[in-house]
């Protein structure tokens, strides 16, 4: 059974004195935030690798995005943002004790999230067919390393969504006890935030 801070029990809109800096709530649970901070540090280090590589090879990073499929990056961004929106609606639903609606939103978030590895699979197939692999140049080495690393974290997120979907379908969450569902949601949103950096790095910035 998930436990929850009493401050988290009521729907946010009804919390008294819901002002910045005063609510002090921890969305989800403390454990998930330890994991999220580790992920942020990991990707910040990987972004520094990107910046250093770009500083040493500016031409490669200026022309590199031209050979990648921008539509793939845009599609992944839209899938993740829409999937994230579904998780917002899932949390809103469980706060109203609407378990059925919450389950449907989580299921939709999961399905949209599964679109990411699918798009990535076709993108990498296209890349390889056009001679773009990890040894094509420094830009593509960093591109594969960062995007595939992000994909691994998306897989963890998808596993989390599948787990909370199962628990929601069994009625394990309610308006007074939904920290597990919210923990999965904030982790999923973290993968959004990181992708919003990765996407322009490789598909937009020149």
């Amino acid at each position: 059974m998930d436990t929850m801070d009493p401050a988290c029990a009521a729907p946010l809109a009804t919390l008294p004195g819901a002002k910045i800096d005063t609510d002090n709530r921890v969305p989800g649970n403390s454990g998930i935030w330890v994991g999220i901070f580790c992920v942020l540090v990991e990707f910040l280090l990987l972004f520094i690798v990107y910046f250093v590589a770009k500083a040493h090879h500016p031409e490669a990073f200026q022309t590199g995005p031209d050979k990648l499929v921008t539509l793939a990056g845009v599609t992944i961004t839209m899938l993740l943002l829409t999937s994230g929106y579904c998780m917002v609606k899932a949390v809103e639903s469980i706060r109203r004790d609407a378990s059925g609606a919450a389950f449907r939103w989580i299921a939709l978030a999961f399905l949209l999230g599964c679109g990411y590895p699918l798009v990535k699979y076709f993108e990498i197939r296209w890349n390889i067919a056009h001679g773009i692999d990890g040894e094509t140049g420094i830009f593509y080495t960093v591109y594969y390393y960062l995007t595939l690393n992000h994909l691994v974290h998306v897989f963890w997120g998808l596993l989390g969504l599948a787990w909370v979907a199962l628990r929601t379908s069994r009625g394990s969450y309610s308006s007074t006890d939904y920290s597990g569902l919210e923990a999965a949601a904030v982790y999923w949103h973290t993968t959004d935030v990181i992708w919003l950096v990765i996407f322009p790095f490789f598909y937009v910035l020149r």
Partner: peptide, 13 residues
């Protein structure tokens, strides 16, 4: 995403 999806405006500082 941080403010509106993750609801950080109401979260621990």
């Amino acid at each position: 995403v941080i403010d509106h999806y993750m609801e950080m405006t109401r979260a621990n500082a």
